[in-house]
Every structure is written in structure tokens, then in C-alpha cells.
Design a protein around this nucleic acid. Structure first.
Ligand code: FES
Ligand code: FES
Lengths: 147, 147
DNA sequence: CAATAGTCGACTAACTCAATCGACTTAGTG
DNA sequence: CACTAAGTCGATTGAGTTAGTCGACTATTG
């Protein structure tokens, strides 16, 4: 039940971009440093997110990436799906594949996998980057106060 | 967020064994046929489950595998953990690993991953093989009636 | 035009996964 | 006791995926 590094990096990058939303575009190098992601790899990831319509970019000096929609309108599930494909733990409960299992119609496990998929989807869909950014900011200032 | 084939096969095999609990030991060949799992691969899986204490086996003719505890006392989470390791989608929320992420203490994502892990764990832990076998039997007889 | 920054496709090394094999051990049958 | 049916175990393979790299290119700014 692991999430790929790509999915993780993508989420972290999107979070970073959300934190700086409405400022100047952020360039790859800075995201890479802030989140400790290999720059060349991050490049690919951002490109993929751009193609999927979540990011826009500007070339040249002072260029960089920025969100194409406000963070409140983007949730984690979408991002993960772009990077890793369907959230379903197994093909027989995926919307795009299934029909692989032998006794599919009478298999007691199928309902369980479905539950898992739905739970995961529900949690990730309700998590917007707006909210995550907010939580992050709160944690940072709380920490500063606390220490 | 995929489950490995090994995890899937292991669950299916355990389900099959639960369906025939209290009968003669089931041999690998039969499980393999019933669930359409490559026999040689299944061998490894059963062995691993045996080492983890969920199965016992008897050699010789009329040998085979059987559950070491009643199906009601085994849940899916345990089995998956044996085959695939921790359920956590990412290391920073796993009990046995973590501390990889850069701003772990102030990262808004961490809470989310935790939610996911807990949800998945909860669903899989409450699913015992007793119940799954029951559902399977119900589906089979229901189907027979229905068609 | 020089410098900076994103774009794109190809590439690779490492690793994991699914599966296979061969040789061995144990248990029951006659 | 020999034979045979079954599980045991470690090693190995081949395919595929993943994480990460590279080089050449294009667009923008000053
Ligand atoms: S139907 Fe897919 S595991 Fe049973
Ligand atoms: S702490 Fe692990 S993703 Fe942020």
C-alpha cells in the first residue's frame, strides 16, 4: 500500500507552491531546495502536473511555476491520480480495469477492497492544498512560539 | 497506492483455506487451481505465511495446508503486513521507519498520510476471514438462486 | 546577444516483483 | 523397507518499474 516517491514529491511541491501562491512564480531550484527533491527529477514532475493543467509556468529570468487555480480548488487525490494512476489497491475494484479475478462475483474480498478505495479517496479528496498550507503555516508559527 | 500481487494472492489463499476450515488439509495444487494462482509462486507465499504462524502444514499424501487458528481470529491487515510490510503509504508515518522528510514537524501533509494509514488499517483490521468466508458463501448461494 | 529558466525526449542504473527450478525432507501406503 | 505424494527451502531469472540523469532546445528579459 505504498505511495510512490513521485506522488510524494508531487504533493510536497504542490504544497510549497500553495504556500507561495499569489507571489512571484517559484522556480524549480527553489522548490527543489525547500523540499529537498532532486532538481532534475522535480522538473519532470512539474512538467507532468503542468500538462495535466494544475500548473502554469513562465520562462526566462524571474520565471518559474505557479498554480493555475487557487489552492482551495485542488485536492491531493487529483494530484496523486495524475502521478500514480488510480487509487484502487487492486484492479478488480478500479474504474478503469477490473475483471481479472477468478470468482469475482462471489468473492468476499472484493467488497473489502472497495471499502479501502473509497476511504482513501474520500480522505484525499477532502484535503485541499489551501487547508494543508494553512496547517503548515500554523505548525510553523506554533513551533516558533513553542521553542 | 497499489497492493502487491503477493498480498492479493495471500488474501485469496487465506480465504480459500477459511472456506475449507475444519476439513482435511488443502494441498497447494487445489488452492492454486481454485484461485488461479501460479502453483510455484503460491508455494512461497504459503511458506511465508506458515513462518509467520498463520498456517500449519502436513507432509506426505493427504497432506496440505490448514489454518493454525480459527478464521475469526485472523484479519486481513495481519496478512498484508506479513507479505507487504507496513500499511503506511509513506515512511514518515510508519511506526518502524520515518524521519525522512525535511520539515517533518511543520509539514501539513503528514497529518493526511496518517489519516490514510489509520483508515486503511482500521478497515483491514476489522475484516476477519470468518466474515469474508461467510460473505463468499452467501454470494455463491445467492447467485445460484438468482440465475 | 547573453544570461536565465522552462521544455522535452531519451536514457540508464538500480531495484522490485512475479515467477521458476532443482534438490531435499517428511509422511503415509503396501 | 521402498515407493510415492506432498511440503521445504534457497537460488535464480526475466520483466518491468522507479528514481534519477543528460543534452539539446526554446522562450523571455535586459
Ligand atoms: S474479486 Fe478481486 S480479489 Fe476477489
Ligand atoms: S512529513 Fe513526510 S511528507 Fe511531510
Amino acid at each position: 500500500m505504498r505511495l510512490s516517491t513521485k506522488g510524494e514529491y508531487a504533493s510536497r511541491a504542490m504544497l510549497e507552491l500553495s504556500l507561495h501562491h499569489e507571489e512571484k512564480p517559484l522556480h524549480i531550484r527553489d522548490i527543489s531546495k525547500a523540499q529537498d527533491i532532486p532538481q532534475r527529477f522535480l522538473e519532470q514532475i512539474l512538467l507532468q502536473l503542468k500538462r495535466a493543467g494544475y500548473l502554469r509556468s513562465r520562462k526566462g529570468p524571474d520565471g518559474g511555476y505557479y498554480l493555475s487555480r487557487p489552492p482551495a480548488e485542488i485536492n491531493v487525490a487529483e494530484v496523486i491520480r495524475v502521478m500514480d494512476g488510480p487509487l484502487a489497491p487492486i484492479d478488480c475494484v478500479s474504474v478503469t480495469a477490473h475483471e481479472v479475478c477468478p470468482h469475482e462475483s462471489s468473492c468476499g474480498l472484493r467488497g473489502l477492497w472497495k471499502e479501502v478505495r473509497d476511504a482513501v479517496a474520500q480522505i484525499m479528496e477532502k484535503a485541499t492544498f489551501e487547508e494543508l498550507a494553512e496547517r503548515t503555516r500554523a505548525a510553523r508559527s506554533g513551533r516558533r512560539r513553542g521553542s
